[in-house]
Design a protein around this nucleic acid. Structure first.
Lengths: 345, 345
DNA sequence: GTGAAAGCGCTAACAG
DNA sequence: CTGTTAGCGCTTTCAC
């Protein structure tokens, strides 16, 4: 029996799956050595154009896909990174992941996704697995802006913290511009003629709530205004928005603007206002935060809101990680600005 | 200069990042050969317990993390899979990814996440990159139940389609039980005494809409009932739910139950009903589909809805993929049942 | 019980 | 211009 193909006669894979061609197969088919085939495919060395073409053709026919695992063993780089999210792919980590993938994709990198579900043990487990897989770097995406403990000391690869910055200031972190978000909202309300502005937000235990509330007061002061009453701390829910507005209308019936710490709160607020007979946005202007489109657009009227730029934040995280991998880490806390999305409220 | 450590004196990494210990370092520190170190760490071969312990201790001190890339080169398996989503981590792919990660995690596998943004070119690009990285398998997660073209013929690794099944029936696909979902909803409405039931759903161009509508009619028939009017096809939005209800109340004011093809529609429907003066759930019962908690719980009243079991679907996809990788593929269309989540509507 | 050597698929340095 | 060789970090025979 003589074989008329140059593919070595190993036994069939038995999986039913097609065999994968290696560079040796390509070389054999093109009638060159593996070294030559490698050069031809990677554009290195000095080869006759005809040889290159022959090798390329052979690779094409065999559907040759070079093994990055072999290459990684050689170069020490895998062109993969790990992304650890703490919030089960919730509404914060999603845009961040998207942005990170944008930035990483440009660097031809692929991301491993790990969901730590806010469990430090799970997180450590994931770190270990990522390190074993020799990822070139790691992004840790939180779901709050509160600082968090670093994932480890002295890891062999760079780590970038997204949204929730590391408590260690020499780490690389990116977060959103919370004071700026409050300023955007307040400026918009004032610009549209509101003077008696209240603030309804999430739990006092969240850094976001506290920072936004403080910045709201400051931003008003910059316009020579005072916040109507105290900030209303509660929860990130529509029910809280409705409830707070009911109370607010009782204590300050002449309020003409409300800045809500989240779109869900703003949505509850607009519902309550509308049902109390107020006409929106004529009598009261409402601004939310998040630009969570599905919710903001369904509200009546559609919500004007501050987009925190989470996708941009993810992109920055990806870029900072790539820079660090390439040997130019930029330690410290970086900030991404948000922007106002004007709808009808 | 004599070095008092067994770590070879290669120049410093210059990144500022700590050097990674290899198995050779561990072996040297434990005073054994690399072969022995390997056996000790993997529990192979016959070694003195004391030797094993010494090696383990050395590994510990050096924070040795074995390189899976080297191991993969040897074994041909990477213990990684790719997950390609078409909907930008939207609300369908998220629970699917979560479920898949559950199943894969148990097999100690890590997933690469790729967002194709519904672009076939991007998708092919991702397939290629995943294959180069020698993933052991691929999950393709859609965002609709409409069948889709396979990602490729004769790929060297198994592929499992989630939610959107492959048009090729010899591929492995998992999807949700759409007729069953309609049955769960209708059975609930009938059980709670509704007799004049209408159906408001998404675009006629979506397989889900058509299948659910047909199954709704059948399920009613099984109870000896007829659908009130024709199914209302529209869009997956609150505004459509509100609009359709307004029309419906005009044509059939005595309707006492509405099955909505999505929670967003149901939410719009409940709003419109409430604002028309109907008291819910006394006068009209509403059931949605999706169990999209954030929306279903914020509705007034909170929505009773059919959970399609997407996370379970993801888990099944992961399990089917692992089985296929292990040489036991289960070709064909698999179905995951949903379940009713009873709230107040 | 332990060590030495071969080899996974590829690239890079050096011969020819 | 092209082929040969060594070696990335690990596991696995096979000697000793």
């Amino acid at each position: 029996m003589t074989s008329d193909t140059s593919v070595p006669e190993s036994g069939p894979p038995a999986n039913g799956l097609p065999r994968r061609a290696g560079i040796a197969d390509v070389a054999a088919r093109a009638g060159v050595s593996v070294g030559t085939a490698s050069k031809a495919l990677n554009g290195r060395g000095n080869l006759r154009e005809e040889t290159r073409a022959r090798v390329r053709a052979a690779a094409e026919e065999l559907e040759f896909a070079p093994s990055t695992v072999a290459r990684s063993l050689l170069t020490g780089r895998t062109f993969t990174v790990g992304i650890i999210t703490t919030d089960s792919y919730g509404r914060f980590s999603i845009p961040i992941m998207r942005g990170a993938e944008d930035a990483l994709g440009l660097g031809e990198m692929l991301a491993f996704l790990c969901d730590s579900r806010d469990d430090p043990i799970r997180e450590q487990h994931h770190i270990k697995r990522l390190l074993e897989r020799r990822v070139d770097g790691i992004i840790v995406a939180g779901r709050r802006t509160d600082a968090r403990q670093p994932v480890g000391r002295n890891l062999p690869v760079p780590v970038v913290y997204a949204l929730a910055p590391s408590a260690d200031e020499s780490d690389i972190s990116v977060t959103s511009d919370e004071p700026g978000a409050a300023r955007l909202a307040i400026d918009h309300l004032v610009r549209t003629g509101r003077r008696r502005i209240a603030h309804i937000t999430g739990p006092h235990s969240h850094a976001s709530s506290r920072v936004r509330a403080d910045s709201t007061v400051e931003a008003l002061r910059a316009h020579g205004l005072e916040l109507v009453g105290d900030p209303w701390f509660g929860s990130w829910s529509e029910a809280w928005g409705r409830f707070a507005v009911a109370q607010l209308l009782r204590s300050d019936p002449d309020v003409d603007g409300i800045f809500c710490g989240a779109d869900v709160i703003a949505r509850g607020a607009t519902d309550a206002l509308r049902e109390s007979g107020a006409s929106l946005p004529m009598q009261v202007g409402v601004v939310g935060v998040d630009n969570w489109v599905i919710s903001a657009e369904a509200a009546r009227p559609p919500l004007t809101t501050v987009d925190l730029g989470l996708q941009e934040l993810g992109r920055r995280a990806g870029e900072l990680l790539i820079a660090a991998i390439d040997g130019s880490p930029a330690p410290g806390l970086h900030t991404v600005p948000g922007h106002l999305v004007v709808r009808e409220s």
